[in-house]
Design a protein around this nucleic acid. Structure first.
Lengths: 193, 193, 193, 193
DNA sequence: CATGAATGAGACTTCATTCAT
DNA sequence: CATGAATGAAGTCTCATTCAT
C-alpha cells in the first residue's frame, strides 16, 4: 500500500528553482525589507510561478526564514596568522566590505523592525549570522596575549563601530585604513600613553 | 505658537491634535515599523479621524517625517562635570537606558530598512537624533586631556557597542556597570599595560 | 473633545447602496450558493466598489448574514377569511409560487450545505423566514374546528410537500390545483371514507 | 469487472482505490458541500495522490458525479408485510434514521445549491436516490385498499415532512413515534371523524 | 500506473488616498 | 475645520488542472 520508500516517486523538486527563489528573496529583502517584499516579486525574479513558491514554503514568513537561514558566513575567511592585531584588521575590513557590498544594514534593519511581528527573523540572524561572525573576531582576539577586557565587549565595539558609523552616515572609502584605526583604538585605547 | 486657550475663534484644539497625531505615529512606528503602521491606527490612537491626519500631512511619508523630526534629544541631559570618564559613563548609561525604554532599535531598524523607498527618514534621524546625540558624547570626550584617537571613532565605538550588543542579543541588566566597562575599554584599551 | 453626538458628522452612508448590495448578495446567493458568490460579483452587480462592501460588513459571512436577515416574509399576505381549508390553499399556493419565482430551493440548499462552516446562515433562515412562514400556516390551520393532529406536523407536511416535489423533480404547472390537492390530502387523509 | 485478485498482472489495487476515492468524495461532499471539497482532501482521505484521482476522472465534477452515482439505496430494506400502514411506518422511520445518520440534508443541500453550475448532480440524485426511495414508499402504499389520493402526493408529504422538520429545526428523538404520527396523519387526515 | 512538481486564475481582505457633507 | 464614505490598487494564499519522472 505504501509506495516504495527507497525511491522518490514522482517528479523531483528542482534544486535550481529552490536556490533561485531563496536568492531572489534575500535580494528583495535586503532592498526593500520584509513587508514591501511581495511574493509576486520573488516569483518573477526567480523565474517561477507564485504557486511554486507556496508549494515549498507555506507562508511568506517561512520563505523569508528559509532565505535568512540559507545565508552563509565564513566562506573565504582568511586563516589566522598568529598576529592578533593584523588578523583583527583583516577580518574587520572584510566584514565591513561585505556589509557594504550586500547592503547588509538594510537587511539588519528589517530584522530589527520586524522584531514585533516576526521575532524569528532576528533570532535566525543571531543564530546563523551574528554568532558565527562574532566567533571569527573572538578567535582572532584570543591570540592576543595580555588581554584585560571582556572579549565580547571588544567584539561588540569592533562590530558596533561599523553600525554606528553607518547609522551616522559617516562614509569611509578605505576600509582597510578604517579597520586599522578601529582595531588600534580598541586594543590600545583612546588615551596617549 | 500655541493658540490662545481663552479664545474660541481661530483653530481650537489644533495644536493638541497635532501633538497627539505625531506621538501616536512615533509610537506605532516604533512598535511596528513604517509599512505596518496604518493611518487608521494612527487616527484611532490619536483620537481623530483619518481625514484630519491627511488634512495636515499630505501623505503618509510626510506624516512619518514630521513625527521623526519632532523627536527631541537632549532633554534632561546631565551637565558636564569636568571629569570626562565620569561624564561619558553617565551619558552612555543614559543613552542605553533611553533606547531600552523606547525600544529605539526598532525605530532605527525601520529607518534602515526603508532607506530604499524613503531615504528621508534615515536622513532625518541623522539630522535630528544621531547628530545631537553624538555631539553630547563628543562634548564629554573633549574634556579629556591627552586624547590620541579620532573622537568620532571613539563616539562610534561607544554608541556602536550598544547596537552590536542588541543585535547579538546580549542583554545587560545594569546599564551603569555596562557603561563603565565600555568607557574604560575605549579610553584604556583592551590590553594590560 | 467628543464631536456633537446629536448630529452625524461627515458624509452619511448611502441607503441606496446598502439596499443594492444586499439585494445583489441575495440574488447571487440564490443563483450560485455561498462559496461561489464572490465579493467582486456582489460589488459589480450593486454598482459599488468592493471596498464599499467591506466598509459596511467586515467579512463575507457578515454580508451574507445581513442579506438573509433583510429578507422579509409576510408582505402581501392575504387576510384570513375564517375558512381554514380555503385559507390554507391560498397560503400554500402563494408559498409555492414565491419559492418558484425566487428559486428559493437553491438558497435553502446553500444554507443546508453550509451548515458545517456557517451554521448561522441556517439559523438565520429559521428565525427570519421559516418561523414566520410556518406561523402563517398555523394561524390558518387553527381556524379549523375538530383538528385532531399536531398542527406542527400538518404544517411540516404541507410545506414539505413542496420540498419533496422539488427534490424529486415533480413539476407542477398550476400551483392552485396543486395546493388544493395537498390541503385536501392533509385535512381529509388519503383513504376513502 | 473486478480484477482477478489472484494475479499480479493487470492493474492491482485499482478497484480498492476506486472505492476509497469515491467513499472519501461522498463523505467530504456531505460534510462540506461541492465547492469546499478539494481534490487534495479527497486524495489525502483516500490515501492516494491527487494525480491518481485525475487519472480516473477527468474533472472534479466527473468525480463527484461518480460518487453520487455509486450511492446505493435499498440495501437492507425490510420486506413488505401486507399491512400498508405498518410498512409505511417502518420504511419512513428507516428513511429518517438513515438521513439523520449520514447527514443527508447537507448532501441534498449541496445538490440543490449547485443546480445552476452542475445540474447533473441533482439529476443524478433524482435518478439514483430519490427515485428508488420513492418507489419503496409507493410500493408499500399500493397495498392499501381504498386509496383515494394521488400516491405521489402522499409520498411527497411523507418524505417532505422530514425535510420540512429538518429545515425548521424541529428535532425528533424517537424516529418510530414520529413515523407513526406522520403516517397516521397522511392516511387518516388531520380532522376528527 | 502512480506520484509529486508546477502553474494560472481567482478569492478575500487591507490600505493610502480622494470625495461629499 | 473636521468627519466619515468611497475607492483602486495590491497582497497573501487556495485550488483544479497539467507536466515530468
Amino acid at each position: 500500500m505504501t509506495p516504495n520508500p527507497g525511491r522518490q516517486a514522482g517528479r523531483p523538486r528542482s534544486a535550481e528553482k529552490r536556490e533561485a527563489i531563496l536568492a531572489a528573496t534575500l535580494a528583495l529583502l535586503t532592498a526593500q525589507g520584509y513587508v514591501r517584499t511581495t511574493l509576486d516579486q520573488v516569483a518573477a525574479r526567480a523565474g517561477v510561478s507564485k504557486s511554486t513558491v507556496h508549494l515549498r514554503w507555506k507562508t511568506k514568513a517561512d520563505l523569508v526564514s528559509a532565505a535568512l537561514a540559507a545565508q552563509r558566513v565564513g566562506d573565504h575567511v582568511a586563516p589566522l596568522t598568529g598576529d592578533a592585531r593584523a588578523d583583527l584588521v583583516t577580518r574587520l575590513a572584510a566584514f565591513a566590505t561585505f556589509l557594504d557590498d550586500v547592503r547588509g544594514m538594510r537587511l539588519i534593519g528589517t530584522c530589527l523592525a520586524e522584531e514585533e511581528h516576526h521575532p524569528e527573523l532576528l533570532a535566525l540572524m543571531r543564530e546563523r549570522t551574528v554568532g558565527p561572525r562574532r566567533a571569527l573576531f573572538r578567535e582572532a582576539l584570543e591570540q592576543q596575549p595580555g588581554l584585560a577586557a571582556d572579549p565580547e565587549d571588544v567584539v561588540s565595539a569592533l562590530i558596533g563601530s561599523y553600525f554606528a558609523d553607518y547609522y551616522a552616515g559617516r562614509t569611509t572609502g578605505d576600509r582597510n585604513a578604517w579597520a586599522v584605526r578601529v582595531v588600534d583604538l580598541l586594543l590600545g585605547g583612546a588615551l596617549r600613553r
